[in-house]
Design a protein around this nucleic acid. Structure first.
Lengths: 165, 165
DNA sequence: GGACATAGTGTTATATTATAACGTATCGAT
DNA sequence: ATCGATACGTTATAATATAACACTATGTCC
């Protein structure tokens, strides 16, 4: 499988996003098949909406997007939240706590907490995979059993700094 | 000034909390005086409520607490949110993003982002002060200008692990 | 010490984010 | 074909947060 390595700062660079999207959706499909899970219509729709960009989206933005396409069916919040819950659980998306928002994962299926650089100008988010070992070691030395870690760094990305702020 | 050093895991240990509280309130008072800021009634009340424990509290919990004491005056959400905003701005409290909650800072006035260990059993929160230099270095190498960092690690504290879960 | 500008408060209303509860539909196994 | 389990659809509502505006207190300039 070629082209699978995605560098962390992909969101901050020009890239063939169509291809990126296709690959990630395909990865999700395979992952669900392997795990014998159902990537149902709603789940796939929500994932596709998130895959359309490397920007975090609020649940209600996703909802609006779902309701935009067809002018017939209107869908209610629980539909979206349930799909998000599933996708989070399988490591296909992440939640950005500091924004109450959700974003597609660029390393689908890796459960271990990622780290995010969030540009406050353009709102793009880079997903890093440092092993924040220093901190985890410190937790360990205090006898603290780590479940999950949230690391979200806000600032201004290189691109936006060029545009003079 | 004696007894000023507070170790990070203080929340997870028995300690003279009355004293801890008194010192932190006094530190806040001095800090506001130095900075020529007003630690008004509402601000002090909210800070005191947060200082009463090392546990994060939601804005509406704080509100309820404010409204409990006197049975006369009822205060509305903006009062609380404004006080919280001030206290956050001066580094007297922190926001725990993953819980939509607020907690008193054990190193008042230090603005740089702290790191938190959050016990999901007892809800106590330890405030660390690692320099998560690895991550910041990585941000830097991507040309990303860091503003603020959120680091929240959820798990089970040593104490709660003893109680067999 | 009165007039002014500013910062803080009080109040109402409302926006935004998230979940409870319950009935219906779909899927997969037998 | 039936059954149990999972997912969906729907209504209502909970929990968190802010907008907007009038009023009050504080500091400061003269």
């Amino acid at each position: 499988m070629s082209g699978k390595q995605r560098h962390p700062e992909i969101a901050f660079r020009k890239h063939d996003h169509r291809r990126c999207q296709r690959q990630l959706l395909s990865a999700a499909t395979h992952l669900c098949a392997e795990r014998k899970l159902r990537l149902t219509l709603r789940r796939r729709q929500v994932l596709e909406i998130l895959l359309a960009s490397h920007q975090p989206m609020g649940a209600y933005d996703i909802l609006a997007e779902l309701n935009r396409s067809d002018d017939k069916e209107r869908v209610a919040p629980p539909i979206v939240y349930r799909a998000l819950e599933f996708l989070l659980g399988e490591g296909l998306i992440h939640r950005i706590e500091s924004r109450n928002a959700f974003i597609s994962c660029i390393h689908p299926g890796h459960h271990r907490g990622a780290q995010f650089l969030i540009c406050r100008d353009c709102d793009r988010v880079a997903e890093l995979e440092s092993n924040d070992s220093g901190l985890l070691a410190e937790a360990d030395s205090l006898g603290f059993a780590v479940d999950h870690s949230v690391v979200e760094i806000t600032g201004v990305c290189a691109e936006c700094q060029k545009h003079d702020r």
